[in-house]
């Protein structure tokens, strides 16, 4: 069976600005994938290409084995977009009922409303919903057609903690039925907690692609912390495996690919190590490391 999403050397330019350049990626069916990146990294552009809302400047985009527009027209794909107002003058239930009739094998209206947590306000006109309720109504619309592939573009923007938990509970339930889910986010904890796989975008390029654990390992992997008086930064940076050193008084924090070798070498070098701790880099550190590795083209061109 063909992959859910395939990008081959995809480039998207808006005038002189390259929103995406040379993006290759493939998402298998059944995966839950986070598209992670800071604002302006190209997440929404990538989602727009996957939905056929835009055409790539170069390269090919294949969705469920064919063009994106064909997958959308066939009702195999649905999406929750970032900026899409609901239609005023109808109730949530009426809107969901309308959307589901467009799809070949939809969920029942009641089921879509229930999964999205809209049952309590199903009869309310959409113009009288709170921000969080409107977002849940958008979620109900997105799943009403029971699509094979679901796109969510920054879905929890404007949610409080409780609503966010409820939302991801609904998504997990949806994904558990074998559906492919791809969501764009800049919330690291969501990517870490929900996705099987994380694709990190930075300035229009894929800078990392793998499980949350693999991405954490990729960027220096582990963190070694200890206290030692009178040790300079340069000396620590020469220790094996170390990619980054932070000094705060006598506290040192080393990012390293090989913590055993780093610690052994530190002892061997006669550094008086106290209060040694070895831990995993968290995803945020990994993410920041990845994002900061990328040269800024604006600085490179001297602007």
């Amino acid at each position: 069976m063909s992959d859910a999403v395939v990008f081959a050397q995809v480039e998207k330019r808006f005038g002189a600005i390259a929103a995406l350049s040379g993006v290759d990626l493939s998402i298998r069916r059944g995966e839950t994938v986070a598209l992670l990146g800071p604002n302006g990294a190209g997440k929404s552009t990538a989602v727009a290409l996957m939905l056929g809302l835009r055409e790539p400047t170069a390269g090919t985009v294949r969705i469920l084995g064919g063009p994106a527009v064909a997958a959308v027209r066939a009702g195999r794909v649905a999406a929750m977009l970032q900026t899409a107002n609901l239609l005023p003058g109808v109730s949530v239930a009426e809107l969901v009922e309308f959307v589901r009739t467009l799809y070949p094998h939809p969920l029942s209206t009641a089921r879509a409303l229930e999964v999205a947590g809209c049952t309590a306000f199903a009869r309310r006109p959409v113009e009288r919903l709170s921000g969080g309720q409107a977002q849940r109504a958008r979620f109900a619309m997105a799943i009403a057609g029971d699509p094979e592939l679901l796109f969510l573009d920054e879905p929890t923007t404007g949610f409080d903690v409780d609503a966010r938990r409820h939302f991801w509970h609904g998504i997990r339930g949806f994904a558990a039925s074998g559906r492919t889910v791809l969501f764009a986010t800049h919330y690291l904890e969501e990517a870490d907690a929900v996705a099987d796989r994380i694709i990190v975008l930075q300035r229009g390029r894929v800078v990392a692609d793998g499980s949350a654990a693999a991405i954490k390992a990729h960027s220096g992997g582990r963190v070694v912390r200890f206290q030692a008086a009178g040790v300079d930064r340069a000396r620590c940076a020469r220790l094996p495996g170390v990619s980054q050193v932070e000094v705060d008084g006598d506290r040192l924090r080393l990012r390293t690919a090989d913590p055993d070798a780093t610690v052994a070498a530190a002892y061997a070098a006669g550094i008086s190590v106290r209060g040694l701790e070895i831990g995993g880099a968290d995803l945020e550190e990994a993410f920041l490391a990845l994002v900061n590795e990328q040269p800024d083209p604006k600085e490179a061109s001297g602007r």
Binding site: V72, N85, L102
Partner: peptide, 17 residues
Amino acid sequence: AERGGGWTRQLRVTPLT
């Protein structure tokens, strides 16, 4: 207003032509 608010964009990602 619906065009400006993104409703037509939402419709474009449904099977409705």
